[in-house]
Simulated assay, not measured.
Amino acid sequence: MIWLQDDTIKEWLPRLQAHRGYHEKLEENTIEAIQAAHVLGYKMCEFDVRMTLDKEVVLFHDPEILGQAISSLNYNELRSMRAVTKLDEVLLWLRDTKEFKLNIEIKSTEVVSFQLEKKVCELVARFNLEDRVLVSSFNPVSLYKVRLFNSKIFRALLLSFEKDEKNTLLIRSGFLNYLAKPQVLHLRAEDYSRHFRNLGKKIPIVLWTVNDPEVYLQNKAEVHGIISDKITPELFSQL
Rank of each mutant, 00 (worst) to 15 (best):
M1I: 05
M1G: 12
W3F: 14
W3A: 05
W3T: 05
L4D: 13
L4G: 02
T8L: 15
I9S: 10
E11I: 05
W12H: 08
L13Q: 02
R20F: 13
R20G: 07
G21C: 09
H23L: 02
E24W: 08
K25T: 14
K25G: 01
L26V: 03
E27K: 11
N29P: 13
T30V: 13
I31M: 10
I31T: 03
I31K: 07
A33R: 06
A33N: 08
A33T: 02
I34R: 00
H38P: 00
V39Q: 11
L40G: 08
C45M: 02
C45R: 00
D48G: 00
D54C: 07
K55T: 09
E56Y: 15
V57L: 02
V58T: 00
F60N: 03
P63S: 12
L66I: 11
L66K: 14
G67E: 07
A69L: 15
I70V: 15
S71P: 01
S72I: 01
L73D: 02
N76F: 14
L78P: 02
S80T: 06
A83S: 14
A83N: 14
T85M: 06
K86Y: 01
E89D: 15
L91D: 08
L92Q: 15
W93P: 04
W93F: 10
W93E: 01
L94A: 09
L94D: 01
R95P: 01
D96Q: 14
T97G: 10
L102M: 08
N103R: 00
I104W: 10
I106Q: 02
T109A: 13
T109I: 09
V111A: 00
Q115G: 09
L116K: 09
L116E: 09
L116A: 12
L116R: 06
E117S: 08
K118V: 08
K118N: 13
K118M: 12
K119N: 09
V120P: 01
C121S: 11
E122P: 02
E122D: 15
L123P: 00
R126K: 15
L134Q: 12
V135M: 12
F138K: 05
N139W: 09
L143H: 04
V146N: 03
N150E: 10
K152M: 07
I153M: 05
F154K: 09
F154C: 05
R155K: 15
L157Y: 10
L157A: 08
S160T: 14
S160K: 01
S160Y: 09
E162V: 01
N167S: 11
L169W: 14
I171G: 06
G174C: 12
G174F: 07
L179A: 05
A180V: 07
A180L: 08
A180I: 04
K181A: 13
P182Y: 07
V184E: 03
V184H: 03
R188C: 01
A189I: 10
A189R: 03
A189F: 09
E190F: 07
D191G: 06
S193H: 06
R197Q: 07
N198V: 07
L199D: 13
L199C: 09
K201A: 12
I203A: 00
P204Q: 00
T209G: 04
D212V: 07
P213L: 11
E214N: 12
V215A: 08
L217I: 15
N219Y: 07
A221N: 13
V223H: 04
I226R: 08
I226A: 12
I227P: 00
S228C: 04
S228L: 05
K230E: 10
E234S: 11
E234G: 03
E234D: 15
E234C: 00
L235Q: 13
Q238L: 13
Q238E: 14
L239D: 06
